[in-house]
Design a protein around this nucleic acid. Structure first.
Lengths: 183, 183
DNA sequence: TATGTTTCTGAACACTATGTTCGGTTATAC
DNA sequence: GTATAACCGAACATAGTGTTCAGAAACATA
């Protein structure tokens, strides 16, 4: 049973922590950020931090939640059941650029995407071709996507999302299709 | 001016530390290994560790050195100047499997490979096609390779190096060639 | 605006790890 | 055999983690 309203202090605290983490990640990279850094910058008590999150990872994930939920909705929507998995990529490029997600979250997107692709590949792939495990194919398609996304973010979005998506498909689709149709 | 012989104690200490690190990585993954773990298992004094390496990362890198040097030799050899970059991949699969390098070192291989590919792509690519930056192409080819390698290692080499190489080329070559020839 | 509840605070604590220092011990090269 | 270089390990300073708890502050609600 969800609360009607959430205590303003809670919202405030979480927001402060998330903002502090974001800024610190930009400054020195996630690996080097400590809980101490975050609570210092957010000006929040140590115990308060642990009352809300049990680790830095959790705090990071909590910020990613809206984006993740959005993708989940999108992926479970009926509209794409009969489309190929490729229909996803453009939206993903666009969403990531819009939200300026940063590549910190890409790991999570990758896992998510992998699971999705694996399902769809298992359905859509003929039984032949034991040669190439669907897990490998899904891993490749997801990894390639993340690779392009990483380059794109690192270089501060030098091309449009549409162009990136076009390149992605040009690169990945031919080889994948060939193998799926029975290499 | 390099030493004629290296003090046996030095060799012994470094070997012990490297072995200890390898074993610990297999047991619990690099991220969770501490200096304390390493010196305990190697049975080496704390100060001794720091006399040889200034961090765990350095110790890790030192173990990677032979493999890296080998690749460097290989890549700078004349024999492949007129071959396509694809000639590399099989050897790499084979080498990594032989040396049981583990994916810890893959980051370094990737950087290395990226530089190599970028050089060769800039040479071999017509001037047309400003659309797709060679940096992106090199990044993609290197990343895909690392992706397949990662999957292969994670799953404990379920396919032969030859088979992996074949799949890699089937997946990556068509799209890449199409773009290089002027997508 | 009074009240009971929830949240925040911050200091104290136990713990784990890092990296340095230094006097004493041991192995090695020659 | 001896000088030297490497090793040892305990002690120390530093820094981070995660927990606890009593008191202060903010909040929702009526």
């Amino acid at each position: 049973m969800p609360q009607k309203t959430i205590d303003r202090r809670i919202q405030r605290t979480r927001q402060l922590l998330q903002n502090a983490l974001s800024e610190l990640i930009l400054q020195k990279g996630y690996e080097k950020v400590t809980v101490q850094d975050v609570i210092d910058r957010a000006n929040v008590g140590r115990s308060t931090f642990y009352a809300h999150f049990e680790s830095l990872d959790q705090l990071l994930l909590s910020g990613f939640e809206p984006l993740r939920a959005q993708f989940e909705d999108f992926l479970s929507g009926a509209e794409f059941d009969h489309e190929s998995p490729w229909a996803l990529s453009l939206t993903m490029f666009q969403q990531v650029q819009k939200q300026q997600g940063g590549y910190i979250t890409l790991t999570h997107i990758q896992k998510f995407l992998y699971g999705y692709l694996l399902d769809h590949l298992k359905m859509g792939m003929p039984k032949r071709n034991k040669n190439v495990p669907p897990e490998l194919l899904a891993h490749y398609v997801a990894s390639s996507f993340i690779a392009l996304m990483t380059w794109w973010i690192d270089n501060e979005y030098p091309l449009s999302a549409e162009k990136m998506n076009e390149i992605y498909r040009q690169l990945v689709e031919p080889g994948t299709m060939a193998i799926m149709m029975g290499g």
